[in-house]
Write a protein that binds this DNA or RNA. Structure first.
Lengths: 203, 203
DNA sequence: AAGGTTGTTGACTGATTAGTCAACTATAAG
DNA sequence: CTTATAGTTGACTAATCAGTCAACAACCTT
């Protein structure tokens, strides 16, 4: 097997960065190639279209984050602490990105999904799939919290969807306002939404 | 004063329709002109750029909706009923749009804001302003509900922001999944989030 | 009916877009 | 060392993009 290269990975990373910071529509293949230090011919050697790149880049991005998710949502951690520490992690990540690029960027999946979900089914489905995976972590934490009597959530799936909506809405708000403040109260708001007994008491 | 025309209005309406259904980036000035039955020269007679059109179209869109908002959020209506009937109104509007164009389109403000808020400050600020106006309706309904002892919300503004996040998140979810289901439980979810005493009891 | 203002037209520009392609090069297996 | 394969290159389309412009038409005021 001849020459091995990391151009494919560099292209996906560059694409995620640019699309997240700007948007899918305003990110050109040329710009992605330039940022990745690759030529257009290489781009189309690895991907058959910009759309296909987006789908694969989204998947790769999720896979990169998955390990961290598994750690944060470890079953060995008390369920509400999982949520607390996840929201803290998100807040810190957003704050860091803000420092680096001067803008609060919100959730890349939701932003891309809203932008082109109605036009490009492949990308829309990919985003949907990833958000579902994310919701599963919420769902099992909620189910565990219910089982332990920490909250009352007989329908864990429905509660998880509500929590995802609140979470994604907060991220969208933060992106639009270019302000991390809506994300500061993410954990408290989530616990309040779940009706956690000691929402305010818990430090 | 010579010839009066409705081309300006037609252009703004066409722009909102196309941008809402597709996206800002994938909506060309040519497409807007075609849908409005106008020529490009006319476009640039009324608007100095695509960005300026977007700002004005957003404002005009909000002004069109404002009367309905004032009616729904009338102080003569019990506060929680205002929210209930608003969410019902949104659900019906989304269902209707779905029937007409085959896709659940979510909130145009949020979608546009997420897409280009980081790139075009004028559009981002306009979206921010409109979403703030929307939140004000929630806020006063929540404050009234608190005053009447229907809910406990000492900080009405914070609660309203949470509600906006949940609301916008649900709309984003619906757009991404192309499914109105996340919007069916909007009213119930909102009342649950607000800790309304008779969230489930109320029909 | 004259003149000035407002609105309309379509052809135009130059930049940018996604995507193509044939020739080229590096490499690892035989 | 040979050769098939994987990866690289840059020049190339053809379409589309936002925006320009000078000439033209309709209308109100006077």
């Amino acid at each position: 097997m001849p020459r091995q290269s990391d151009v494919e990975e560099r292209l996906m990373n560059a694409a995620m960065d640019l699309i997240w910071e700007h948007s899918y529509g305003s990110t050109s293949v040329d710009a992605i190639c330039e940022k990745a230090g690759a030529k257009k011919g290489s781009f189309y050697h690895f991907f058959e279209s910009k759309s296909e790149l987006a789908v694969k880049a989204l998947e790769a991005d999720w896979q990169r984050k998955k390990a961290r998710m598994d750690e944060i949502f470890s079953a060995s951690v008390p369920p509400l602490d999982r949520l607390r520490s996840y929201f803290k992690h998100v807040y810190e990540g957003q704050t860091k990105a803000h420092g680096e690029c001067g803008a609060v960027l919100g959730c890349p999946y939701c932003t891309i999904g809203c932008e082109i979900g109605t036009q490009d089914r492949a990308i829309g489905d990919q985003v949907h799939k990833i958000l579902d995976r994310n919701a599963k972590y919420f769902e099992s934490a909620i189910r565990d919290a219910h089982a332990q009597g920490l909250i009352s959530a007989p329908d864990a799936k429905a509660k998880a969807q509500m929590l995802v909506a609140f979470f994604q809405g907060s991220l969208a708000q933060a992106r639009i306002e270019n302000d991390v403040r809506p994300l500061q109260r993410l954990a408290d708001g989530a616990l309040e939404l779940l009706g956690a007994k000691s929402a305010k008491a818990a430090k």
